[in-house]
């Protein structure tokens, strides 16, 4: 949890005093305000890239690299994830051992649901990603959990993403102290420098988004979570958002967290909230 510094304590104390003087009783202490954060986050990129509308960032660096965009567009016309999506659809409809299927766990036969994940699960008090929800569904129907980097899991999430294309991301942080705390932890993770290289997510994908690292553009965090899983040309296969987190954390010289660890789920919660309003457009092809 965030340790409150003396200065902040002073502010809170002053607030309490003011509240008491005004006869309002005890005001709530300064608390997370995801919507204010989201507006600030978007406006940062708007100021840095006045010619790039927020909606364009769902295509990552192709939002700003016209030359690379054309090549990429050609690949997207015959996407290498096509079979994965079909496989995912078949898996989604396949009956479990008990005769039920994923359709019993997810509304609308799994169409148009991606944009609501991750969601806060008020029963467990934890952030539930789509992957966790899929395994939760399996558990309820007596099926073993899928490994997070299995072909099956990636196919299912690819299909659900595909069947949700065009829906604006709509992650909710309910008015629940646990949800706000989870969001705040994800936010803190994003802004925290870590590892031997002493770098934060925001260093590369915020402040230096658009710059070149070696021969590659650094992409912006805005729009990152809208298009996963991705087919990475470099690896010739599908990659989840958490796998990408894992790689980034390693690259800065820190011990990475596991896919679907509490840390990464919270980071995804924060990041996806920042992209609320942008279209879900997964899966996608990336370098």
């Amino acid at each position: 949890m965030i340790r409150r510094g003396g200065r902040r304590g002073g502010v809170v104390a002053a607030g309490l005093l003011t509240g008491a003087l005004l006869g309002l009783g005890f005001p709530a202490p300064a608390r997370a305000d995801p919507e204010a954060d989201r507006i600030g986050f978007r406006s940062y990129f708007q100021q840095r890239f006045p010619d790039v509308p927020a909606e364009a960032w769902i295509d990552g660096m192709y939002a700003i690299d016209e030359g690379a965009r054309q090549q990429w567009q050609e690949i997207e016309d015959f996407p290498p994830y096509e079979f994965t999506v079909e496989e995912g659809q078949a898996l989604f409809q396949d009956p479990f051992g008990d005769g039920r299927s994923y359709g019993d766990c997810f509304p609308d036969a799994g169409r148009g649901i991606r944009q609501r994940y991750p969601r806060f699960d008020s029963e467990t008090g934890e952030v539930e990603t789509l992957e966790v929800a899929i395994n939760g569904c399996r558990a309820r129907h007596g099926e073993p959990a899928l490994s997070y980097d299995s072909k099956e899991m990636l196919a299912l999430t690819a299909w659900i993403a595909y069947a949700s294309r065009g829906r604006p991301m709509a992650v909710e942080v309910p008015d629940d102290a646990r949800a706000l705390a989870a969001y705040e932890e994800g936010k803190r993770f994003y802004y925290t420098k870590r590892g031997r290289l002493d770098m934060a997510c925001v260093d590369c994908h915020g402040r230096y988004a658009g710059a070149f690292i070696r021969g590659d553009h650094l992409s912006a965090s805005l729009g990152h979570p809208t298009h996963f899983p991705v087919y990475r040309l470099k690896l010739g296969g599908m990659v989840s958002l958490h796998k990408r987190f894992h790689g980034c954390i390693r690259d800065v010289g820190a011990e990475p967290f596991d896919e679907q660890s509490r840390e990464f789920r919270r980071l995804e919660y924060f990041l996806t909230y920042m992209s609320n309003g942008l279209e879900a457009n997964g899966p996608a092809v990336r370098k």
Partner: peptide
């Protein structure tokens, strides 16, 4: 070279 142009270094960054 990840972040700096240096003389004859290939594919430099510009951070």
């Amino acid at each position: 070279l990840a972040c700096h142009v240096i003389a004859d270094g290939q594919l430099p960054g510009n951070i």
